[in-house]
């Protein structure tokens, strides 16, 4: 069971890939699909590894993703 989750606001993403590259547990990858602006947003490939550290949220220049820990 994952300790945390990431939430993506797909339409705000500009596809820079920072979140994918710097996720410490490699939870994300860039999708091959496009959002309505023509960018490839990230999607979750290994959700169970997410620690909810929010480093993706810190990196995302477009405020399009964030992570958090599940409440226990």
């Amino acid at each position: 069971m994952a300790k945390g989750f990431v939430a993506v606001t797909v339409e705000r993403c500009k596809g820079c890939g920072f979140c994918v590259e710097f996720c410490p547990t490699k939870v994300l990858d860039l999708s091959s699909a496009f959002n309505s602006k023509g960018y490839h947003p990230p999607y979750v490939v290994a959700g169970e590894k997410c620690s909810g550290c929010d480093l993706c949220g810190m990196y995302c220049p477009d405020f399009a993703i964030f992570g958090a820990r599940y409440a226990r």
Binding site: A7, V10, E11, A33, V44, D54, G57, F63, A68
Partner: peptide, 22 residues
Amino acid sequence: MSEFECVMEIPEDARNPVEPFL
């Protein structure tokens, strides 16, 4: 684009922490 959003269970009240500041 919903195919990307629902892989994980996201609490309903989850909110990007930067939003109240912007």
